[in-house]
Design a protein around this nucleic acid. Sequence first.
DNA 1: CTGTATTTGTCCGTATGTATC
DNA 2: AGATACATACGGACAAATACA
Lengths: 245, 245
Amino acid sequence: MTGQSKLDRAAGIAVWRQIMEMLKGEIAAGGYEKGSRLPPESEIASRFGVNRHTVRRAIAALTAEGLLRADQGRGTFVASAPLSYPINARTRFSEIVSGQDRSPSGRLIGSEIEDADALLAQHLEVPLGTPLIRLKTLRVADSVPMMVGTSWLEQARVPNLVADYAECGTITEALRRGGIKDYSRRESRISAELVDTEDAQQLGIALGHPVVVIESVNVDPDGRPLQYTRTRAAADRIQLVVNGE
Amino acid sequence: MTGQSKLDRAAGIAVWRQIMEMLKGEIAAGGYEKGSRLPPESEIASRFGVNRHTVRRAIAALTAEGLLRADQGRGTFVASAPLSYPINARTRFSEIVSGQDRSPSGRLIGSEIEDADALLAQHLEVPLGTPLIRLKTLRVADSVPMMVGTSWLEQARVPNLVADYAECGTITEALRRGGIKDYSRRESRISAELVDTEDAQQLGIALGHPVVVIESVNVDPDGRPLQYTRTRAAADRIQLVVNGE
DNA sequence: CTGTATTTGTCCGTATGTATC
DNA sequence: AGATACATACGGACAAATACA
């Protein structure tokens, strides 16, 4: 099968769109494994007998749909199946990702000290104006960015958190080093938004795409609020799973 | 306070944008209650000393942000706080909405008979090709559309479902009439997408806005799958709540 | 139930400033 | 400087939905 035979240059449908549909069809039909690499653009171009730019346009459209991912210098890949992300009292990014045979990692984007405003004070059950650490992190599975999170924690409880996190890359481990052996998730509130400019860059998605927003409070074993987090996940890479109790 | 004094026509910022910011400020400052009505466009226009169209533009921008809702013939309203929608084994739209002092209603958009494809057969644990009822419904709280859902049920189990639902407007009640006294939710899978054309119309939101997508399976008391549903909720009107077990 | 007023939605214009080529 | 395109601002008329006496 050359594929070239099916191109119709007089159909009134742009050639790049025809190529896009054909690639989509081949992916849907299972011609390519999830996560597998497509042939290089030049090869696809010669197969269809078109210029490489025409293929690029088709790939760009499929990337915008979330079906493909193009990495500079590595190649173009079929987007993997969305990550199943269970939401429960023991939600831990690193455990979830390794449990699905992918390799998790975390990166510190930035941190600051700020005083608790009314909303944060309420969530963390601290007095208004309490100094908090604000931690912005990126979580990655198999080198694909999955979610960015902004967390607030009481500075006095975990003074060395930022350095610990920067070193080990998981919140669970960083908290353990700060003397907090365990924690659990009290409540998660889920909605969706359009991605903002900064998150779009971090997540490698285009503006105008949706993100799933998860606001959650982690509590220590005594039930005292420890961490309030607002996580934004690329919607086409993740699927939250909630069990019926 | 006339507000007019603050308009600066030489600031290089469009007048409609200035009005938008001022309205937003007044709403945030609590000048208007959630759900309350704004003055008519003509009144706002004369207050700022501009044309009605200029006000309309500001209102359109705030509507797109989800801060306002404009209903033809009724007025422009400050958007209510998002509906908290608990996800658990006993998730029932009508109970949730009435529990938050709002009045729920449901409307049948359409229904069809179709044969189970591989995916549906797997979810409902029926043989491939089993005749299913496909039910498309709109769920509304306080006359604001909240979510559209597409449900599939085995036709043989609930032959009269469509008529029953059309009459009473709640799935729970329609199932009861069909002899199914209780059901519970086994699993919910949550993601987000951009709204499609049809849902945008039903939900009264603009294209390009995000919807929260919930795929769920309801099972009868024996644990047998009864209903597979794919729900799309207007993201800025709803917040799913998941308790930490 | 029925007309009337109110209010938002849509369409037709015109004029002006600003950015771009 | 000129030509062009585009967003802004305004004005008016009417349609469509709702509220109300």
